[in-house]
């Protein structure tokens, strides 16, 4: 089980809801992924357009826990406001703190992320900050009381996979709260790698939404996260430089 604050989830795959080709494909992908936590962004309505089909209204909200993000925020103050707006819906009390500090790389601003996390914890939110792969920052966030740490595997939407598995492992080893690898996952093998490193979960969006077949990729990601988790629990064999025969050397039948 993935335990975040007061919540428990059987799925360790968290799915983003942006950039799908259409709502029907998205709904099927969400179903195939087995995800129980879905991320959303908060944006202004177009008040002059009464009919604005929205994915949220297609979902059975009893089946999912919503994880709104604070994307678009560049300061802690903006992030806190977006989080409070999301919570005012009455639909959620978890938030993914996302304060971008660099438009080119979309890497998070560590100082503002820390400030926003502190403020939102005081306000009673379940806080999951999106961070870089900095172990010291992860520990500082945990000390504040963050309910999970969400380090980036690589830049958002880049699909580059885990570019620094060593730093990710430092975070996994040195924090107690769940570590959910967020951003940069490109393929099922990346998700497996994250789980085999000991991550507690994986959050991805573009890897599914942008795949040639998003529904099939959602299922592949579900299976990858499960396989990686099982592999981690089972414990892999040590790497050796030399070969060791799998078949017995004795009793060979020869002419």
């Amino acid at each position: 089980m993935l335990n975040i604050g007061p919540y428990s989830f059987s799925s360790r795959l968290l799915l983003g809801t942006g950039k799908y080709p259409d709502f029907e494909t998205q709904k099927k992908a969400v179903d195939a992924s087995g995800s129980e936590i879905l991320t959303f962004a908060v944006r202004r309505m177009n008040i002059f357009e009464a009919s604005q089909p929205n994915f949220l209204e297609m979902l059975d909200l009893k089946k999912y826990t919503l994880l709104p993000n604070t994307a678009g925020a560049k300061t802690a103050e903006e992030a806190v406001r977006i989080a409070k707006l999301a919570k005012a819906s009455g639909l959620c009390d978890m938030v993914k703190v996302e304060v971008i500090g660099c438009d080119k790389t979309l890497l998070p601003d560590p100082v503002e992320t820390l400030k926003a996390t502190e403020e939102l914890l005081k306000e009673g939110f379940i806080v999951l900050p999106y961070t870089s792969d900095d172990v010291v920052l992860a520990r500082r966030l945990e000390e504040l009381g963050a309910h999970a740490i969400m380090p980036a595997a690589s830049p958002i939407g880049s699909g580059q996979g885990i570019i620094n598995p060593l730093y990710l492992k430092f975070i996994i080893e040195q924090t107690i709260v769940p570590v959910i690898v967020d951003a940069g996952i490109g393929s099922p093998s990346d998700a497996i790698e994250a789980m085999e490193l000991g991550a507690d979960g994986v959050l991805l969006n573009t890897a599914v939404a942008g795949a040639k077949d998003p529904v099939k990729m959602a299922l592949a990601m579900k299976m990858a996260v499960e396989a990686g988790q099982l592999g981690f629990e089972a414990g892999r064999i040590p790497r050796k430089e030399t070969a060791t025969a799998s078949s017995p050397l004795e009793g060979l039948s020869v002419k």
Binding site: G16, F40, N54, N69, A71, G90
Partner: peptide
Amino acid sequence: IISNEKQSVTQIKENDRIELVRFVGGG
């Protein structure tokens, strides 16, 4: 920020600055 259950009792008047937002797809 107005919690959704208070929308019916939150009064509006001339020159109010109102933001209306919703959840949209995001990662």
